[in-house]
Design a protein around this nucleic acid. Sequence first.
DNA 1: CTGAAAGCGCTTACAG
DNA 2: CTGAAAGCGCTTACAG
Lengths: 348, 348
Amino acid sequence: MEQLVGRCTLKDVAHLAGVSVTSASMALADNPRVSATTKEAVRVAAMKLGYVPHSAGRALRSRRVSAIAVVLPHSSQHVFSHPTLTALLDGIVSVAADNDLSTILSTSRTEEDEASAYRRFMNGREADGVIVASAAVADANVIGLARSGYPIVIVGRAPHVARATAVSLDDGHGGQAATRHLLEAHGVRRIAHISGPLGHQSAQDKLTGYRNALMASAIAPEPALEIEGDYSDESGSRAVEDLVRRGTSFEAIFAANDQMALGAREALQAMGLSVPGDVLLVGYDDIPLARYVEPALTSVQGDMAEVGSVAALRLLELIGGRLPDQPVTLLPTELVVRNSCGCARHLA
Amino acid sequence: MEQLVGRCTLKDVAHLAGVSVTSASMALADNPRVSATTKEAVRVAAMKLGYVPHSAGRALRSRRVSAIAVVLPHSSQHVFSHPTLTALLDGIVSVAADNDLSTILSTSRTEEDEASAYRRFMNGREADGVIVASAAVADANVIGLARSGYPIVIVGRAPHVARATAVSLDDGHGGQAATRHLLEAHGVRRIAHISGPLGHQSAQDKLTGYRNALMASAIAPEPALEIEGDYSDESGSRAVEDLVRRGTSFEAIFAANDQMALGAREALQAMGLSVPGDVLLVGYDDIPLARYVEPALTSVQGDMAEVGSVAALRLLELIGGRLPDQPVTLLPTELVVRNSCGCARHLA
DNA sequence: CTGAAAGCGCTTACAG
DNA sequence: CTGAAAGCGCTTACAG
């Protein structure tokens, strides 16, 4: 079987199969109007020539480019820790590939860059739809896009965008589980929360979960115990320093991601406070690092690859003109208990 | 300034500007034959209508899609640890964006999947060129692609592919520096090396660097001290267990990536051996985890984002029909000294 | 069941 | 300096 590589168009295939270009096209599309004999002849010819349809030719006529775009956070430092991001991409790309779609990656440094990327995807028809993994709560680009009718799926909850299709971990539940564990398994009452940037819904949701858990234990949330970070380890350290400087007492910390938890731990150690001896600590994301540090970090885990897969599937529905019957999907999170929350003390 | 969004073609722009489609096209391309007045009129019209050229229309005629593809390792578990991978992508995507190119992401589970992805990119003209970050030494796909004349840049050294353009960290140098540090700063002589899968050039290069450093100190490399791993932490653990079971004595370990180094450390600790008390340890990649573990891991660091940028720039040259005057680029690595190699003992 | 023709939106020779 | 025409490779009404 010779595999001729190089330029070869549908015309060549049709010629070799002895049929018209129309029939060749329809045969390859498995159109029922074409006879089985013709289909077979065309398939053989295409195989012989190593025919691959020219994507631009197809796209121009059929108004479908067979590509989806993924827009990632501006800096890719915040919002997603890197392992989370690669897992998400993994999920998206594998579903896309299974459906013969290309995945276009876009990261923008500024909001204007992002706006121009969106225009290329949508108005320039570079992608049939877009998955946005960078949405701040009030991102004008995203809101405009959603309004235009262009297929878009948001990774993260997006209650502010009307009728948006969104896929997210259930961060409200995750935040609540982390806090409840500290309350119930370890009996502490003064739990500080280092939140993510509150312009992001995920940060809001974890904070709400934290507060709900406190209130379920009849503890009033206390503003002095809530500090806003930016998901960086430095901001975790700063949060601890602030708490101590202001004289706010606390027995435990729940941080909205593992990086800030590790930053907090460093600051505590620098002050001579041990984890979990003096302060209990729980993080979020369950990055690989979590199980390697000493003490191993208790954290909230979720399947980001699954988030990516589901987001891609929803986008396919939208592109196909179907409105997902479940516009918002929340995937479960699970608390992974290790030593930093104090559980080892009980076991030992 | 009204921003009409939605369908709008060059014809609309030309009509609004009161010129022909030809002039409109050439005006937007800043072609010198067009008068300044016309250019201005067309630009204003395009702005008013929010015109974005239709990518397929342009691609079909100009035989350029303005997109590059990135092919990542099959599993994305091995070969690259995740932080390395995201840094690489970051470098590629930012250069691509600066040059108005889209980046298409492709990860394949099998070699056949990968072959079909290559055919789509090349024969289906989905991308103007490809960056391959998954190349095993004898990858038939890559060799075929390179031969076809299709623009391709390999991330990693590729001495087996004739006239290949390649960008890589200087892993030979990195392996040598790691080993030399153990020899010279710590005076050990029996250093084990846990290599990466030797089907990969990077693994070969680190091994060669290791051997060269030994020989420079008049120590003959010893096969019993060289164990092949697969870049996973389990394989690092297994390597240590093998060494001990076979009764091979060693004072230090140089692992070809940090994950294997951490796996090795776990196995050592399980045997009651301490790092760096009983065995010195050096890793490779300098993943974020390295500075957090206890003892902090000495490792070899390189700028993978820079590797990505340079790879993208080289690909642009190839796409433009220019042969890079420097087909192979090796970027420097640097040893980051922390505690696992024993340096803290000296300082303390 | 099949084929000739039109046309997706653009760029690029070809005339003026 | 400008415009009418051709054509990139494909799919999809339109005839038969």
